[in-house]
Amino acid sequence: MSVLELTNISKHFGAIQAVNDVSLSLEAGEVVGLMGDNGAGKSTLVKMIAGNFQPSHGTMRMDGKELVLHKPVDARRHGIEIVHQDLALCNNLTAAANVFLGRELRRGFGPLRILDYAGMYKRAGQIFAELKSETRPRDLIRQMSGGQRQAVAIARTRLSDAKIVLMDEPTAAISVRQVAEVLNLIRRLRDQGITVVLISHRMPDVFDVADRVIVLRRGRKVADKRIADSSPVEVTGLITGAIEQV
């Protein structure tokens, strides 16, 4: 049985049809490459899965049960984590504060529950070590390099035992060495049985780690096939529209 199943999902913003009648299913422990030109609707699609947007039409089912997400917290409760395309970081806060943004650790009781600074620094430090990042929990985002920022955004997905990790262009702004680290992480997640959706423009990355590739064009799904049965040339054709549909 699939972990997540989307049926006839659409999303429009006023007159703009960002995602149009997309159905797909995600299996446990697979890596799915999600590709498409700018504006194809990739980010909108994963934001619906992450609870940032509600679909205009269509349904989502997780483990066979209907899934309605009103806010990001709902998605996280169901084991869905996301790395946003723009990373969604606050420059004025520390790395640890950003990792825990929206789900801060607290200690104490009732109204006197206060932020657990020590606990958050510790956990964030452990995750950065796990990610082999030299990012330090107390540093401000403002002073960080692209790779360190990326690590902070990715670290958020490691806070809970996720079932599905959505990565929206996680390798767009980082060095070659760091790209390799991210791809390694994706493999490690898959080995733990976690489903990863990787949005990327970098054809080699997708063909390197993904088991399956889904192509969106102008909001519609135009391909969904195993990597082994496809080729970069074919996918490029599907993205640009040179190949209509497969």
């Binding site: 940032n52 806010k71 990001p72 004025n92 806060l93 943004l101 929206g102 789900r103 801060e104 932020l115």
Partner: peptide
């Protein structure tokens, strides 16, 4: 401002409101 989740979220909103929204603040 220093010890509550509410206070932390005030700084987050001022730092990057869009990010705060996306992360579920």
């Amino acid at each position: 401002l220093r010890w509550t989740k509410f206070g932390r979220h005030l700084y987050a909103i001022g730092g990057n409101e869009h990010a705060a929204t996306l992360t579920g603040v």
